[in-house]
Amino acid sequence: MKFINLFKRKKSCQVAKDRLKILLISDRINCSPEMMELIKTDIAKVISKYMKIDTENMDIQINAKGSRGSREGKTPTLYANIPIIDLHKM
């Protein structure tokens, strides 16, 4: 069984890197995951007025551009990826 697990298991180093990347984005921009969730629901509410969107699969994130993000004077950007189910809801 251990032999099979060896192939299945995601290397813990990769897990650590993935966790850190998400952690540091919110640390650096000083924006908590809860706040991101609030922003997400608000955006969904507004867009839903005009078209039918897939709220389950929408994704928003703040990308700090540049190696050290906003500290180097580059502006962080909010990316929203919202799948549209029906463009003409009305």
């Binding site: 290397k11 813990s12 180093c13 990769q14 650590a16 890197k17 850190l20 990347k21 540091l24 190696s67 050290r68």
Partner: peptide
């Protein structure tokens, strides 16, 4: 690091810049 259970120095430098 070799068996993928620790971040390499390159990984750490990449993250912290």
């Amino acid at each position: 690091v070799k068996r993928g259970d620790m971040m390499s120095s390159a990984d750490v430098v990449d993250i912290l810049a």
